[in-house]
């Protein structure tokens, strides 16, 4: 007891540490353990070793679902990085350059941050519902009925719409991170390049971007993780089955279906779901390690 009294920091750290280990870290390991069993959650558990993984990768039905879902996740991440992130960078730069009305515009671009994904899903319904939605109603009133489609029900349109909506929701946060990093660029660097005759755009590429590499890395890492684990928005918009033909199916939806069972796909398969979860965990881990090495190199070089 005497030794503990001499370590006051222990009392500060212990509660958080216990909670963190019990509810965040241990579950990751337990998840892997569960994946070695066949279990529907209520009955008995049957040890089947790696059979769940074999089923995931060889049985055509599950493997197709798996590749479709993972493919969607990867497509989504790439869209976020290639389409949305540049927009966030440009917007941040525009605000940094103090365009007209930037104070109000900044806040309003950030506003969607306070919208729950349920609210965002609602806006999607409000706009895109084929029968009552605003878009189709307006098109009808403008006599442009030939443009009316089922939007989210259309296999080809669903994904782009989803990316646009998710981008809309996430635009503000990334932009704010970039903007704050831009603000910390020392004034003399900016002025020096102006003196050298650099216009706004070349300043952007040769001065601003290299200086905000830390926040770019930050946003990149967050986008990858969020992209690989997206769940709320597709669930709210199209339900746990991932929409028409799995056009909006993602790894976490696939996991959820199997973990808790929905009427459509039958009873819960805890072991199988845990296998999916573990695979996703490994994917995230691999990408994170790769990212850390790759991005550290860039950070050092800049």
């Amino acid at each position: 007891m005497k030794k503990i009294k001499k370590m006051p920091y222990l009392w500060f750290i212990l509660p958080g540490l216990i909670l963190y280990i019990v509810f965040m870290m241990a579950p990751m390991l337990t998840s892997f353990y569960l994946s070695l069993f066949s279990w529907n959650g209520i009955g008995s558990m049957k040890f089947i070793s790696f059979d769940n993984y074999i089923k995931l990768f060889t049985e055509s039905r599950s493997f197709d679902m798996f590749t479709n879902a993972l493919g969607n996740n990867i497509k989504y991440v790439l869209c976020m990085l290639i389409i949305i992130m540049p927009i966030q960078l440009l917007l941040a730069y525009a605000f940094h350059m103090k365009i007209k009305g930037y104070r109000t515009l900044q806040l309003l671009v950030f506003l969607p941050f306070v919208f729950s994904t349920v609210i965002v899903g609602f806006f999607v319904m409000e706009l895109f519902n084929p029968n009552f939605g605003i878009i189709n109603t307006v098109l009808k009133n403008l006599n442009l009925e030939q443009l009316i489609t089922s939007w989210l029900g259309d296999r080809n349109k669903a994904f782009p719409i989803f990316v646009a909506v998710a981008g809309w929701q996430g635009l503000g946060v990334g932009m704010m991170l970039f903007l704050s990093n831009m603000k910390s660029i020392p004034m003399d660097i900016m002025e020096a390049s102006e003196i050298d005759g650099a216009g706004a755009f070349s300043k952007f590429f040769s001065v601003v971007i290299p200086c905000i590499i830390p926040s770019i890395i930050n946003v990149l890492v967050l986008d990858v993780i969020w992209g690989l684990t997206v769940f709320d928005l597709p669930y709210v918009i199209v339900g746990p089955n991932g929409g028409v033909n799995g056009s909006l199916d993602f790894m976490n939806l696939f996991f959820y279906r199997n973990a808790f069972g929905t009427g459509y796909s039958g009873e819960a398969q805890v072991g199988f779901a845990s296998a999916i979860g573990t695979v996703l965990f490994v994917v995230i881990l691999a990408i994170s390690i790769f990212q850390t090495n790759f991005l550290n190199k860039i950070d050092l070089e800049s």
């Binding site: 579950p27 990751m28 337990t30 998840s31 569960l34 890492v221 845990s274 979860g277």
Partner: peptide
């Protein structure tokens, strides 16, 4: 924990 979202450990948490 910043890297690993809560969804991955949801089943064991539920059981617990």
């Amino acid at each position: 924990g910043l890297m690993f979202p809560i969804q991955l450990g949801i089943l064991p948490n539920f059981l617990l």
